[in-house]
Write a protein that binds this DNA or RNA. Structure first.
Lengths: 212, 212
DNA sequence: CGAAGGTAACTAAACAGTTACTCACCGATG
DNA sequence: CATCGGTGAGTAACTGTTTAGTTACCTTCG
């Protein structure tokens, strides 16, 4: 019991804090509860992270580190990417809830450094659009926002997802359904999907000529 | 000052509580702060609502009451409905944040009674699909979930919206952009949009015949 | 006059953060 | 090569404040 292990202690605190923060948010989280769950003296928590807010920031940092969104690399079929994204994000555990708490708790920093990643994703979409692979009349940044929402919204709002679809987003069947739907929608948006991995019926966009 | 007015007092408390809860959530909210903002003695708050949780429930109830989502009535073009929904929800003030807090705070009741409204919306979509107005290969409940997400996601995650699009979702320009995008996407999903209200180029979905 | 509306001051618990201490490790010094 | 001392890891008990919820007491209307 009296073994010393700074790294282990730190990791234990972070793990317990992740659970606590994801479950009840920074305001609802109790420092004593985190310390107890980590099997660590509360003082250690302040030793390593300074304060409750510092701990929350550290947890967010650590989660953002390992949660590479990797949205929309060029050269891969959109429907495939979307289906993958649904699967990956659904399996990512409590980090999504953490992002929601962070978004609500209005920490102005942290979002800025990720802007570069989004910038790249938008560029990839623009590229695909000029190459004629994606519906060109859709605004590229709006499209990215919508696609991110498509993937994350059900995970962020499990209750709403249950109310509408009858299943929790963590449910295996729900993941199958959602990734399938995401792929189908991707096929609608992709004008000329590169790889026909989906056996679903696929469509092309043709202008409607209306008589005035 | 010493005028008596129970209804007024109740309303004042609810209004102040809405602000507070929307801003910092149920855990972060301070009863004293709500009472002070309402210009009311804290005791009155307990008189009318019993407890902090009771007050939160009452606020949510009241907001859900007046926030009729009215998603997807049959007979109106999808693109129009979506654009409207974006405008309405964006103008709806703090209620969306409240919904997010409520979703995170895992109050199992409250979601159940709204299930009927979602049921109707899904039926409307199904109807439109069998009538050949909406892409039939998309699962109806998944489609509803996605469309709700399309409207609400940017509002629920303002920071993310800023990072991707450069604008806050409450920004007038952002509302214009998002409603325009929603309409365009609606046109993609609607096989045969009824009313051509959008001056944007519009498209029909035609199957791609692939040579095997 | 009595029930509902309203007030001020109080309380018991919970909470973030601290104090004051011990213990183990490790490199430097005699 | 022992031992000394400093530093970082760890503990238990405490503190000052904040907070949800209460008590005991007025006031006004029907």
């Amino acid at each position: 019991m009296s073994e010393r292990n700074p790294d282990r202690t730190r990791a234990d605190i972070l793990a317990a804090a992740l659970e606590e923060f994801a479950a009840v948010g920074p305001a609802g989280a109790r420092v004593d509860r985190i310390a107890a769950a980590a099997g660590v003296n509360k003082r250690m928590l302040y030793h390593y992270f300074g304060s409750k807010d510092g701990l929350f920031a550290a947890v967010c940092e650590a989660q953002l580190e390992r949660a590479e969104l990797a949205f929309f690399k060029p050269g891969v079929a959109l429907s495939e990417q979307l289906a993958d994204a649904v699967r990956v994000q659904s399996a990512a555990g409590p980090w999504m809830r953490l992002l929601v708490w962070a978004a609500l708790s209005a920490t102005p920093q942290g979002g800025t450094d990720r802007a570069e990643a989004w910038r790249r994703a938008i560029d990839a979409i623009l590229e695909a659009q000029t190459a004629g692979e994606l519906a060109a009349e859709l605004d590229s940044s709006q499209l990215l926002l919508a696609l991110v929402g498509l993937v994350l919204f059900p995970i962020a709002f499990p209750q709403l997802t249950v109310a509408i679809t009858g299943r929790l987003p963590s449910d295996d069947q729900s993941i199958v359904e959602r990734s399938g739907f995401a792929a189908a929608l991707g096929s609608l948006i992709a004008v000329n999907d590169r790889q026909a991995t989906q056996p679903k019926p696929r469509y092309r966009l043709t202008p409607i000529v209306t008589r005035s």
